[in-house]
Amino acid sequence: MFKVRLFFLATAFFVAGGTSFAQDAVIGYVKTVQGDAAIVVGGKAIKAEPATPVQIGNVLKTGKAGSMGVTFKDNTIMSLGPDTEITVDEYLFAPGKGDLKLSASMTKGSLNYVSGIIAKLKPEAISLKTPTGTIGVRGTHFLTKVEAEQ
């Protein structure tokens, strides 16, 4: 798992090329928070607040009465209801080079998804994995509820 994350980070740096690394590794920001919500970075939960950055490999997580909204660099919006967990596995947004990808895994909870520029330019590059199947997006707005595997 650690190796995989390292690989994705390396990819993000490579694609960004040149300018400030720290800034380019950020793929989105937390915009709204209610109650308990965290960004899990390398297994460590950081309390989510508006302006908390999100990077590849991070887990978006809300507690029993929590909710949180994140806006990504390509204008994709994900807002999570209570008791939700979503990992951002891959994210590439370099339209000039045709590097576009957004893949995430949702293990439980509820999600409101509003697609952004990646879905417009390359819809097949988006996938949301759940324990029982995968959701592909063709430029749109949807909701999904995932029951955790027992």
């Binding site: 959701i135 592909g136 997006v137 707005h141 909701l143 029951e147």
Partner: peptide, 23 residues
């Protein structure tokens, strides 16, 4: 299984598509 997806219209009134793939 109670996991499900619902498609909604976009803000501009258009409706996109969602493909749900399982086993």
């Amino acid at each position: 299984n109670r996991s499900y997806v619902v498609l909604l219209s976009n803000d501009d009134g258009t409706t996109g598509k969602v493909l749900v793939s399982g086993r």
